[in-house]
């Protein structure tokens, strides 16, 4: 392990009211096993908490897990708060049960960089993040 290498830091956040975080925990572990530093903040985070945590932890990636169906309000709100905090270039991912038309809207509006749904293999998320940072370097 190269301890000097810069690590990709990811905030895995669960905004809103839904009370299941098994999915978020599985993703967090997979990202850890892929060599990333994953900050996990637990359930029921407000958009303000998510954005401020992203700032203090200086993450490269914010990944939301939303199963409550509130993605069309929560995701834009958090993106907006991140932009206000000068964190426009944070990679913004949304995961959850998200209908295709919503996913298209979120991406078209510039809210999310990518959407993942429960059917997606974990490797797809890892590869996506790795590719983004490989090309940025």
């Amino acid at each position: 392990m190269d301890v000097k290498a810069k690590k990709i830091r990811v905030l895995v956040a669960k905004p809103g009211l839904d009370g299941h975080d098994r999915g978020a925990r599985v993703v967090a572990r997979a990202l850890r096993d892929a060599g990333m530093e994953v900050i996990y903040t637990g359930l029921h985070q407000t958009p303000e908490q998510v954005a401020e945590t992203a700032l203090q932890e200086d993450v490269d990636v914010v990944g939301l897990s939303i199963l409550s169906g509130a993605h069309m309000t929560l995701a834009p709100k958090i993106r907006h708060l991140l932009n206000e905090k000068d964190m426009k270039d944070v990679l913004f991912l949304v995961g959850g049960i998200i209908p295709e038309e919503d996913a298209e809207k979120l991406i078209a509006a510039g809210t999310a960089d990518q959407i993942f749904t429960p059917g997606d293999p974990l490797d797809k998320i890892i590869d996506y993040i790795n590719a983004k940072f490989a090309s940025a370097e």
Binding site: V3, K7, G35, Y40
Partner: peptide, 9 residues
């Protein structure tokens, strides 16, 4: 892996 889960927060 060199990764970590930082969960104290």
């Amino acid at each position: 892996s060199g990764g970590a889960i930082l969960g104290d927060r």
